[in-house]
Design a protein around this nucleic acid. Structure first.
Lengths: 117, 117
DNA sequence: ATGGTTACATACTTTGGGGTAAGTACTTGT
DNA sequence: ACAAGTACTTACCCCAAAGTATGTAACCAT
């Protein structure tokens, strides 16, 4: 076990840059491979866990819940579980989550204008 | 050396999802920790390599040129070098690069509304 | 001739995101 | 009795991104 240097750039960034740069703040929330894809699928309405899984066949279950939990912690998605068997868990976008539409939309705009698809 | 499975999700994604999802397309260009920060600093006008370095003290030189080269390859920044000594290299945003303002701006909007800063 | 400046390059290491595979709890259908 | 469905959990592995550290070429000023 090698101790991590207290003065490392990594540590410095964690404390300063991450919270002070709004763009990085957003990247923290919707960055990564799967998050925008999950959010996109929730934009067409609330979905069950299994519906999301079927909608995004390439994602592994681990990645799916992992990101759903993170999005939940970031107040981007809501989780509603019914105490029945088999379990029924529904995910939906929160208000902040829905507001991300503007962001994703501007991204799509740019992508379309600049050679994607 | 273990061979990578041809059918792995990783490979599948490289070929399909990356190019077919416009949001992921944008993430490929401006995702990562430093890229948006570099782009942000270029939005206030062309900058020399050394000016960027001073403007972003926490970045290492390796990260700086690495991302500048990538942004160049993605046609987001221009590089103009003067054949003098000591070298003078100026980086500026291309048209697509400037168009990212809309995207970054919507991110900042969202961040401000949702608890950043 | 030595140090400073500028814009890189390169070898090595660490870290975290993502992938694979397998297991769990509970109940219904056959 | 056993497979199947639902919503997870867990252990383990791999690789790419990021960080650390050092070197280089060219010239100028002292």
């Amino acid at each position: 076990m090698t101790a991590i240097k207290e003065s490392s750039t990594r540590n410095f960034n964690k404390g300063v840059a991450l919270t002070s740069c709004p763009v990085t703040f957003v990247m923290e929330k919707i960055g990564g491979y799967w998050k925008p894809i999950i959010i996109y699928h929730l934009m067409s309405g609330p979905k069950r866990y299994s519906e999301l899984k079927r909608a995004i066949p390439q994602i592994t279950e681990k990645m799916l819940i992992q990101h759903l939990k993170q999005l939940q912690a970031d107040d981007i998605v809501n989780r509603v579980a019914q105490a029945v068997v088999p379990p029924v868990v529904t995910y939906s976008l929160t208000k902040p989550g829905e507001d991300l539409f503007t962001v994703l939309d501007s991204m799509v705009d740019w992508a379309v204008k600049n050679g994607s698809v």
